[in-house]
Design a protein around this nucleic acid. Structure first.
Lengths: 141, 141
DNA sequence: TTTGATTATGAGATTCAGTTTCAGCGAATA
DNA sequence: TATTCGCTGAAACTGAATCTCATAATCAAA
């Protein structure tokens, strides 16, 4: 069993929730897909193979994956929540093209440290962050 | 006439748009208010003095202010667009308390440089960015 | 001024993503 | 296998944002 499936299983057990085929399928698709999927995009990807899985379930499962640390919600300012893999991925920022909508990732090693310093100075306890740069990608500029 | 009013007037003239009392009032309230106002919050602030100004107008005017560079749209992840003064304010990040919802600002002078370096390396042309840190503020931690 | 072209306004309707509801369904445990 | 209790899917609902349209207001020209 892949590590992510195990994490989900453990989380469900721990919370007294149930293992269902839908949850397994959704996790699989989520992991195999590229990054930054909106709930309805994932739902569309399921449709062909699993036409009986409803949007609500996809949505609820993405929430579940976020809760148990397998997914992370990101927002690119277009009013749709997107989800990306969270496990084994360090925090990073996104370069979002305002023309074609593509999102690239970038890491800033010093970013984490800077945040901590600022937060400590202001008595703020950081739990997570979001760093997005908007502009034009190589193709669209 | 304050500088901001002048900028709005110039912008309207330039675009062939019309000066209206509503636009003046909304700009005034926007400038006098604290930061990070949602459209409906601003609308509520108007209500007592100007019960005839509709929400649509507030909303459209905030868009207008954003267009002409007087306002900037910020998003704190709760699904509501907020607006803050843009003029004479350097780019900054926000520390957002996930408990009480309060947002503090912090400046990121060194971050600007990092962004530019990264963008250049990836062929990305940055136009603006958003940097938000979520956590617990001094009171709520 | 008055006129006339054109933009602005406000109330309500619409949209759209996200969320909730609820009547069965199905997984887990004994 | 029976019983319990969470899960599912379709549809209804929510709330913010956006659009529509009849009427009102602006402003440049006469």
């Amino acid at each position: 069993m892949r590590k992510e499936q195990e994490i989900l299983t453990d989380y469900l057990k721990h919370k007294g929730l149930k293992q269902t085929s839908q949850r397994g399928i959704i996790l699989d698709i989520f992991l195999s897909a590229g990054r930054h999927l909106a709930a309805d995009e994932l739902h569309n990807m399921l449709r062909d193979e699993n036409p009986r899985i409803g949007f609500s379930t996809v949505y609820r499962t993405l929430r579940l994956l976020t809760e148990c640390g397998l997914a992370r919600e990101v927002n690119f300012g277009d009013g749709r929540a997107r989800f990306e893999r969270a496990l084994d991925k360090s925090q990073h920022g996104h370069l979002i093209c305002t023309k074609c909508g593509k999102a690239e990732e970038f890491t800033i090693a010093t970013m984490e440290k800077s945040i901590k310093q600022i937060a400590v100075k202001l008595g703020f306890k950081p739990e997570g962050h979001r760093f997005e740069v908007y502009g034009f990608c190589k193709k669209c500029r």
